[in-house]
Design a protein around this nucleic acid. Structure first.
Lengths: 157, 157
DNA sequence: TTGTGTGCAAAAGCTTTGCATGTTG
DNA sequence: CAACATGCAAAGCTTTTGCACACAA
């Protein structure tokens, strides 16, 4: 069972690497070990993270990387849609892997800052309608709902 | 005609001041001239702006204000829903007045960075549905569509 | 008068850049 | 071997904070 999940994750990682390689070749960039290591780190982990967390996480595993390379690589990964960049709060961008993961939006708790995910097909309809009306080719979107959890077990910071 | 528009704008400003005054009194804050001057500046102007633009704009008119007060006051205005805070790009928060102005979302051009506004009632339905399902009391939302203008007059940066 | 709010400048926090070195193609 | 990528640290930018003074209440 766990084995199957691992295999599934490994498979996703391999496919992500293929996509990344294609992007690198298409743009005549270099296949450096750092870039692929960072991609792997991101896809080994679940959930949202920021650049500093990724940097520290890699440092803790004794990888030799710099913040500059982390930021550089994150931008490349965002460009080829392997990673999504969010701005839930005001400062500090948050990222998450996006290949092999269903489309979703976010619900942010105003009390504890927790980020939940949800899906609603109507967002696709809005994108389609607005793209037509405004004569835009919509590439992506960002929908965040902010509110307070009604359950009493919310940490309420 | 212009006169009527001016009167309309003046009326909105007066109402906004009333709301701000109520908020200040409720929270036992002080009615400083700076706070009301900033509110007025914001409501005299249309469109989106960032903190620095507002600061420079006020400096150019020889108002004696500091960045600290601009940020402080913007936060107060966001708290009483007179101003909305956005994060269209990665850095630098953008603001816009929100009283007396219809609810709307944003369409951002990936080529020139222009921000357009649109309305779609389905977003209200999504908020309502998701609030129920996730047991959240949704306070507000942020929906941004990112895309490229199909018209050829787009500045395309 | 009493303490909150302000201006100013310095500090803080996230991200980018410059430079010398290392490595890919 | 030529150009691009990296590591490191310094710089850049937006936002926050500390301090002394000003001024609402």
């Amino acid at each position: 069972m766990t084995e199957k999940i691992m295999n599934q994750k490994e498979k996703i990682i391999e496919e992500a690497k293929t996509i990344f390689t294609a992007h690198i070749e298409k743009h005549a960039l270099r296949k450096t070990p750092e870039r692929f290591t960072i991609l792997e780190e991101i896809y080994q982990t679940d959930g949202h993270f920021d650049a500093e967390e990724l940097y520290v996480h890699m440092k803790n595993q004794n990888y030799r990387v710099s913040r500059a390379t982390v930021y550089n690589t994150l931008e490349l990964l965002v460009n080829c849609d392997l990673v999504t960049k969010h701005a839930f709060g005001k400062n500090m961008a948050q990222y998450e892997k996006s290949y092999g993961y269903k489309q979703h939006d976010h619900l942010i708790c105003l009390d504890c800052g927790k980020v939940l995910e949800f899906c609603d097909p109507r967002i696709q309809q809005i994108k389609s309608t607005m793209g037509d009306i405004m004569e835009f080719e919509i590439k992506h979107h960002s929908l965040n709902l902010y509110g307070q959890c009604k359950k009493k077990d919310c940490s309420n910071k």
